[in-house]
Simulated assay, not measured.
Amino acid sequence: MTDALRPMAKQQRLYEQVLDRLRDYVTEGGLRAGDRLPPERDLAARLGVSRASVKQAIVVLEVQGLVEARHGGGTYLVRDTLEVEPVERMVDRRRRLPDVLEAREALETKLAELAAERREEDDLTAMRAALEHMAREIEQGGHGVEGDRLFHAAVTEAAHSALLAEFMRSIADQIAESRTESLRQPHRPARSLAQHQAILDAVEARRPRQAAAAMRRHVRTVAKVRLLSWDPAEDH
């Protein structure tokens, strides 16, 4: 019988202790993706904390894409482990993310428009290869992060704008952060792949306005992440 769900000590923020206990519970119990966690009331009773503390912990796990809370249907593991990112790092990223997404929309919408005007056959080949790579990653249970990176890099290259490409390189780390945040949302990888295909179709057809609109829709989907609706103040 696992001891992971033993009552809490008082020296650490309670919801962070809940996170630690849940991680141990999943590991010791051999739980896997798709398995259901105990109901919040049961967790609260076994851990000796309020349901509010349990709920705070579940929200942090949901923000990080580690669990999926189904309305009226319980909380399910998305991955085989609960390797939780430090909350302080999440707070920092939440502060940066709106500016990064704003910059991405401005830059990448223009890049897609230019790509539709200037693309060469080699550019289309690189974009298709990136989508194939992303599809393979998703089929193998991944998020498609590398394929996503390759696709956006190929669109940037297809625009043949040295200065815009330099701007993109200057925020590459922040873009990578926003990419990971988006693709770990439930059901997001397949949706992003389909949106990439729409961008490619417009670029290939040399339709600049359509390419720009498709990229704008995509980046606005990227912006729809659980992290931005999370209020860190509630958890401190």
Rank of each mutant, 00 (worst) to 15 (best):
T2E: 02
D3L: 09
D3Y: 02
R6N: 02
K10P: 04
Q12Y: 00
Q17I: 03
V18A: 01
V18I: 08
A33Q: 05
A33H: 04
G34D: 02
G34I: 04
D35S: 05
L37S: 02
P39R: 05
D42R: 04
L43M: 03
A44I: 03
S50N: 13
A52Y: 10
A52H: 07
V54N: 01
Q56R: 06
A57S: 05
A57W: 01
E62V: 07
Q64H: 10
V67H: 02
E68C: 12
A69Q: 12
G73R: 11
G73V: 01
R79F: 08
T81R: 12
V84S: 04
E85G: 04
M90S: 13
V91D: 01
D92H: 11
R93E: 13
R95K: 11
R96K: 09
L97E: 07
V100W: 08
A106W: 07
A106P: 00
E108D: 14
T109I: 12
K110E: 08
D122F: 06
T125H: 04
R128T: 12
A129P: 00
A129F: 00
E132G: 15
E132F: 11
A135E: 14
H143D: 05
H143C: 01
E146V: 13
D148A: 03
R149G: 09
L150W: 08
F151M: 06
H152A: 07
H152F: 15
A153Y: 03
A158Y: 07
A158R: 06
A159Q: 00
H160F: 11
E166Q: 13
A176F: 12
E177I: 07
E177C: 07
E181L: 15
S182F: 14
R184P: 01
Q185E: 13
L193S: 11
L193C: 11
Q195V: 13
H196Y: 07
E204I: 05
A213S: 07
A214R: 00
A214N: 06
A214F: 11
M215Q: 10
H218R: 08
R220K: 14
K224G: 13
L228M: 14
L228W: 11
E234W: 00
D235R: 00
